[in-house]
Design a protein around this nucleic acid. Structure first.
Lengths: 362, 362
DNA sequence: ACTCATTGTGAAACCGGTTTTATATTGTTA
DNA sequence: TAACAATATAAAACCGGTTTCACAATGAGT
């Protein structure tokens, strides 16, 4: 702690000006290297700053310049490590530009996301990156009255709310294609009964991923089977339940694709603890390429989505908007997901991927 | 994105006042429910707000009230999931108080930590929680000129910089006792040759943890052996190197304690991939109770440090200071670490802990 | 009807910077 | 040396709120 009571008030630029024998305006110019200031005057001001331990008041500066030096990053949650790379990337770019970052967890609740948008309107920050799972029409009303750059990330379909692409920038990933790659990979391994643990249908993200499952089946000529798809939450426990119901089928799937790694890892553990082998009895592929996927045995096949790149791209775009150097009307950048085949989905041992355990990378 | 050019300027409270036919002062009082305002007047003002889509300007309010509504949380890094619980806890408490949170990664670099302290001095935020591994004397100079509440967390020994406890609040964990518990546990399992992978000696945190190893040996009557302690970085690769050198000994250790879970997990994988069994051939205990520790087989024994509680306590203390309700001169709160014995360190199979795989808890 | 407390509002000061404007000083050129 | 540009600074306006102060209107009590 630090007592905030009966301390001498922090020095202002007026104190500096008095101490240096100049006017506040001159002191300001001296400190910001703007306009004409005699070298000797500047030195007197700098000496006064050092002497009085002066630091400028952000609010006062912001009030006049209308720049907060803050970027607001709103993300769904932190329960999994899914977002840390993105957070780090955004923070890094912010630092490069001398900016700081406000982090706001929305818990994937629309009300919270709108609250975050309102923070932007109240000039808490100069710009905002909003990562969302869903996309409610309530956004658009809020977005339309924004005065500051906004970059959306996560999920945003073109057809929601009437060409939202015209209203904001979007940097994200092709959710459908990720699952498509994973399921096609399983089909190419010869699997025909491929289970899919789909996650919660209320989030657009998971509906998109489910579409990937469907289109991979179609492409592979595998007929759709209703009891091989299980909608649920996105947690471990519901993955377990899903696997149980798969195993209870007269013809259980020989491969399972999960809509995220958390569920895939839980499924793999449950299958192993039940005495079955992965991938020999059941192959598994996850989604998101969490760090953990290289730390289990067998190492989990999964789909990488370039969180760090997305974060960097979003942040760079934000600063492009702020600087006015990015003139294009609205930018839409979709990163490709990348299938990473590891051990949990390779049947033929002769073609197993090289073990690169210790790099943590595949 | 959102065009910030040629938009109508955001309405100010003057616009509201004009629209409602009152003075700005009255409008302000109406909006903040302060002083006397006729109900009918208030309604007119509220109507004007709605009509003009007014949101107050933070900087202007801050300038006068000297409250930013922001708390600054500075943490070392995000490479591991170690801090997410704490971040979440701090954010939650902030929200309860209508505050937002600035997150600043220091990368455990003193220069960055001091930069964060300076942000506080520039009134970026009303208060700050600083989590650190080390503790440099440079802090104290910076801390002494702070005008705002500061709560330290992480590591802070009494004997650094002359009674720092007088100058700020500290909420943390007993680093030494965590390793002490872990190593004593191993000793009680009958192990005599207990290896210790110590992490980087330049961080006070790891020196403290090393002390725990020493005192556990002493308590257990086990003589210290120089080649059973390896100082290194805190990464996977250096854990591997350490294990290799252990296995190359004429008498390798029968148990290994690691200064963090990242290293413990890497050690366990390496030992398993080398064809040895955990815990049968070598027992392992980690440190920090990362989520992952329940997701590997055998489940990793480790020591939990109550990140969420620490975060909550630190945040609550911050708000106690801000509200002036916390009057004690400087608070020092040390949470006890808690040993969690799982499968990686239990030799006798009859006394294995109940399998609680799916709760993720032990 | 008069006094006094309560209620309600506007005018103006203030927070601490930045920026504009006006003016003074210095230096350069014809 | 006069004219003019470049340099240097002070004074004042401004950003958009909150808060203080003064004063008016209303209501209660005697």
């Amino acid at each position: 702690m630090k007592k905030s009571s009966n301390q001498p008030a922090a020095p202002t630029i007026y104190d500096i000006a008095t101490a240096a024998g100049v006017s506040p305006g001159t002191a300001s110019r001296a400190l910001n290297n703007i306009g004409y200031v005699k070298t000797e005057t500047r030195q007197r001001v700098e000496a006064a700053v050092k002497d009085l331990k002066y630091t400028p008041n952000r609010a006062a500066r912001t009030l006049k310049t209308k720049k907060t030096g803050l970027v607001l990053l709103a993300i769904p949650d932190t329960d999994n490590s899914f977002y840390v790379d993105m957070i780090k990337a955004v923070q890094d770019v912010c630092k490069e530009h001398g900016y700081s970052m406000i982090l706001y967890y929305t818990d994937a609740i629309p009300v919270e996301e709108i609250r975050a948008l309102r923070m932007l309107r109240e000039h808490y920050a100069d710009a905002m990156i909003l990562v969302n799972f869903s996309f409610t029409s309530g956004y658009l009303k809020e977005i339309d009255r924004l005065q500051a750059p906004l970059v959306l990330s996560g999920i945003c379909k073109d057809d929601i709310g009437g060409r939202p692409g015209d209203r904001f920038d979007y940097i994200g990933v092709d959710a459908e294609k990720g699952v498509f790659q994973a399921v096609r990979h399983l089909a190419r391994q010869g699997h025909v009964r491929i289970g899919y643990i789909a996650g919660p249908a209320e989030f657009l993200l998971f509906r998109e991923r489910h579409n990937g499952y469907l289109s991979a089946l179609t492409e592979s000529g595998i007929p759709y089977s209703d009891n091989l798809v299980i909608w649920c939450s996105y947690t471990e426990s519901c993955a377990i339940r899903a696997v149980k119901s798969f195993l209870a089928l007269s013809e259980p799937p020989t491969a399972i694709c999960c809509a995220n790694d958390i569920m895939a890892l839980a499924a793999q553990r449950y299958i192993q603890d039940a005495g079955l082998r992965v991938p020999d009895d059941i192959s598994i592929v996850g989604m998101d390429n969490l760090d953990v996927t290289t730390k289990v045995r067998p190492m989990m096949s999964t789909v990488a989505i370039a969180q760090a790149e997305i974060g960097r791209a979003a942040a760079n775009l934000v600063f492009g908007r702020l600087a006015g150097t990015e003139m294009r009307s609205s930018i839409r950048q979709i990163f490709e997901p990348r299938l990473i085949v590891r051990e949990s989905s390779i049947l033929c041992s002769c073609c197993k991927p090289r073990k690169e355990y210790w790099t943590g990378n595949a």
